[in-house]
């Protein structure tokens, strides 16, 4: 597979490490009353969609950036790649 890195251009997926669902960026509040339940949902439960999937890849053999990649789990087509830090900053701003 090829991941079109936002700043480095197309790179072989073998340069990257795959982590999983991009929702792992949405870490719950440790002080919430049901924090254990929230963390359980966050860490263990997955939508696991057959279709478009937002996932985290890490460019270990490259610039060490984390990316949010939108990829179809049936066709493997990649439709969007963003720097995870940018995504996280936008999320922080909007929340």
């Amino acid at each position: 597979m090829i991941i079109n890195h936002p700043t480095l251009g197309p790179r072989d997926a073998a340069e990257f490490v795959h982590l999983g669902d991009a929702t792992l960026m949405n870490r719950p509040d440790w002080q919430a009353e049901d924090a254990v339940e929230q963390f359980h949902e966050y860490l263990y439960q997955r939508d696991n969609p057959a279709g478009d999937y937002r996932e985290l890849w890490y460019h270990e053999q490259g610039d060490r950036s984390w990316l949010v990649v939108t990829r179809n789990t049936l066709t493997h087509e990649i439709t969007d790649v963003q720097m995870a830090r940018d995504v996280a900053m936008q999320q922080a701003k909007s929340s």
């Binding site: 870490r27 984390w66 996280a88």
Partner: peptide, 18 residues
């Protein structure tokens, strides 16, 4: 060594971007 560094970058970029 490699795995911890990877995790730290995850925390830095994805959890604490600011």
């Amino acid at each position: 060594a490699v795995l911890v560094y990877r995790r730290l970058e995850f925390v830095r970029q994805c959890l604490c971007p600011n």
